[in-house]
């Protein structure tokens, strides 16, 4: 119940952002919501099942291109976005069947290679996707402000939906089974957990919303090219956000996304040339000093407070 209330409060608070009437803030909000979707998505396979996936960029890019190609052929926007999610899911089911039997580093590399292959496939099919030249998408006939609001609420809605699914999964049998797999896959199998099926489900969950996010992103920026939507950072940043917020938690990914994007924005504006190094520094500090994320830090602090209160 508490999780649902927090989600509701967050969604309501975020919905008030357009009242500020600041286009820059709206853009930032859309990006945060987008990364919240990606981080939340990664958390299914990476946080819950413990499989270090780098396929997020592949799902995002596939979604973006699926939707872009459909839109170019005159499909309605909603349909194209939905199809993007479906396509990413099918792709995950297919690829998952092939690579989810790998563990540890091997899985990480395979999932990374999936993204690279996708990027190259797009690069080498210029007839369908424009290849390295990229693709233009139809620009919606809306005022700038209305369009900014539309995409903000689309991303926000998707983030809320992803989080809702995360809450349901984490409390249910699927989430429980995934946590078993993460801690000891062989033992989980022997206890009757269909590990292969569960991992595939988690991989598909991590694909569907990433794919839709890619589709919305493509419509939002109305121009996509392979290095942009298959960017390796699209696979790495969500992971860092989850580590930042807290692995395997419901709200960790959102907190991580908001913090990292805000921080990046500040750094980006003041230190353009060492932007990547600053991100690297955050990652290094995070891994060395706070591997369990902020939520765990807050939780242990609360715990200490409570104990002191009792004493």
């Amino acid at each position: 119940m508490r999780d649902w209330l927090i989600l509701l409060a967050l969604a309501l608070a975020a919905s008030a952002l357009p009242l500020a009437g600041d286009n820059y803030l709206m853009r930032l909000g859309t990006i945060v919501a987008m990364y919240a979707v990606l981080a939340q998505s990664w958390n299914f396979i990476g946080g819950l099942a413990g499989y270090p996936s780098f396929a997020t960029a592949a799902f995002f890019g596939l979604g973006a291109y699926t939707s872009a190609v459909l839109l170019a052929h005159g499909a309605p926007t909603g349909f194209a976005w939905g199809a993007a999610g479906l396509m990413a899911t099918l792709f995950a089911a297919l690829i998952g069947g092939a690579i989810l039997h790998l563990r540890g580093h091997y899985f990480a590399i395979a999932s990374l290679a999936v993204g690279e292959v996708m990027r190259e496939i797009v690069n080498t099919t210029p007839d369908l996707t424009g290849g390295g030249m990229g693709m233009n998408l139809p620009v919606p006939k809306l005022s700038i402000a209305a369009s900014a609001q539309l995409f903000y609420f689309a991303m926000l809605g998707l983030a809320a939906l992803t989080t809702a699914v995360a809450i349901i999964v984490q409390r249910g049998k699927l989430g429980f089974g995934l946590r078993c797999i993460q801690q000891n896959e062989d033992a989980a199998n022997i206890l009757g957990v269909n590990a292969y099926g569960y991992k595939t489900a988690a991989f598909c969950l991590s694909a569907v919303f990433s794919g839709i996010a890619g589709a919305i992103y493509a419509s939002w920026v109305h121009y996509i090219e392979p290095p942009d939507v298959f960017d390796i950072l699209l696979a790495v940043k969500p992971l860092v956000m989850v580590l930042l917020g807290g692995l395997g938690t419901v709200f960790g990914p959102i907190i991580g996304a908001a913090l990292l994007i805000t921080f990046e924005e500040v750094v980006w504006r003041s230190f353009l040339t060492i932007h990547a190094a600053m991100l690297g520094l955050i990652i290094v500090l995070l891994v060395l000093f706070m591997p369990n994320g902020l939520l765990a830090l807050v939780r242990s602090w609360l715990e200490r407070r409570r104990k002191e209160g009792k004493a």
């Binding site: 409390r171 249910g172 049998k173 429980f176 089974g177 078993c180 989980a188 206890l191 009757g192 957990v193 269909n194």
Partner: peptide, 13 residues
């Protein structure tokens, strides 16, 4: 509970 839920008869968590 993992044993009860995934292999045993428990209908819910």
């Amino acid at each position: 509970a993992a044993g009860a839920v995934f292999a045993g008869a428990a209908p819910s968590l």
